[in-house]
């Protein structure tokens, strides 16, 4: 294999990993606050169709990203209202949100299938972005750098700020946080909205970064991988980063295997496609064997908050 191919693979991996990383970073914050939102896939699809339509109609890529985030927030608020204000079951509501997002995006995207848009260009000047080696660092669009910055920002927020401490406290012991005087529901609404915005932006990556068109269910299960990745990373932002690129690598391998030729096709592409999930299952098993506090899972994850008075 020559250098050019390696660089090409690397850049493809980074691109494929970015939506997963963005969505998973949002979901990590949501889960740290004690809420399990399984609707990531649905929110991503709503973000994807919003971004596609905005670019198709206006050609404004950054406006598309902002509105996709807004659409993600709006979708997440459906989930927030049902699970936080009405204490509905989070698992069921999350699944319903995914079904809703899938259907809604298909409806909104009717008639736009396969209509082309333009991709979001690289952030840095063309000289840097096309240089054979420097493009490893400078060759990406703003969304890729955004994903990386958000990982660091979320780590810093959770670890170093008082607001992050409160958010972790709410996810760890909602009743105690309530008795100290923090608004458990308020914190969780904010976290769910952040997760929605991130999922919306992650969805926007599909028409803006990967395939410049609209296709039904174009996120292809990446939202689910993002949810799995949060567990895989045991709720730690930097493990999330490593995990997202690992999953991205495996997904890219799948594409190469599908394309045929080369040593990769010795393994069926279906197996490559299954690998991220197999890895997650293995990690979950390993975590539950250890069964102690070091699993780092928020203690209140998925439990509705029901104050006694």
């Amino acid at each position: 294999m020559n250098l050019d191919l390696l660089i090409a693979i690397f850049i493809t991996v980074v691109g494929a990993s970015t939506p997963i990383l963005i969505a998973a970073t949002g979901e990590l914050v949501v889960e740290k606050s004690g809420v399990l939102n399984l609707g990531v896939e649905g929110m991503m699809l709503v973000g994807a169709i919003t971004a596609f339509l905005v670019v198709f109609l206006t050609g404004q890529h950054y406006l598309a990203i902002v509105l996709a985030a807004g659409a993600g927030i709006a979708t997440s608020m459906i989930f927030g209202f049902l699970t936080l204000s009405l204490s509905a079951n989070q698992t069921a509501t999350g699944l319903a949100l995914t079904i809703f997002g899938t259907g809604f995006s298909a409806l909104a995207g009717q008639g736009y299938s396969a209509r082309p848009v333009t991709l979001l260009g690289p952030l840095f000047p063309a000289d840097l972005a096309t240089h054979p080696v420097l493009r490893i660092v400078f060759g990406y669009s703003a969304l890729v750098y955004f994903a990386l910055i958000m990982v660091v920002a979320v780590w810093w927020f959770l670890k170093k700020t008082r607001a992050g401490l409160i958010l972790r406290a709410v996810g760890e012991n909602d009743l105690s946080a309530h008795s100290i005087g923090y608004s458990v529901i308020g914190v969780r609404y904010a976290a769910v909205a952040f997760g929605g915005a991130m999922a919306g932006i992650a969805g926007a990556c599909f028409p803006l970064l990967l395939t410049p068109q609209w296709a039904e269910r174009m996120t292809a299960g990446r939202g689910w991988i993002a949810v799995a990745l949060v567990v895989f990373a045991s709720w730690r932002p930097f493990r999330l980063l490593a995990g997202a690129y690992l999953f991205g690598l495996v997904m890219t391998m799948e594409l190469y295997a599908k394309a045929g030729g080369g040593p990769l096709s010795a393994i069926p592409s279906e197996l490559w496609a299954a690998l991220p999930y197999l890895a997650t299952v293995v990690v979950l098993v390993l975590i539950s064997i250890r069964r102690d506090a070091s699993t780092n899972a928020p203690a209140c994850l998925g439990r509705p908050f029901l104050p006694s008075n």
């Binding site: 401490l165 760890e172 105690s176 923090y182």
Partner: peptide, 24 residues
């Protein structure tokens, strides 16, 4: 001081106390 402690098991003593403080 509550009978059932309002503590966060996964956090440190310092973090727990910081959570209970109103002043930053």
């Amino acid at each position: 001081v509550f009978q059932h402690f309002s503590l966060f098991e996964a956090l440190t003593v310092l973090e727990n106390i910081a959570l209970g403080m109103d002043a930053k």
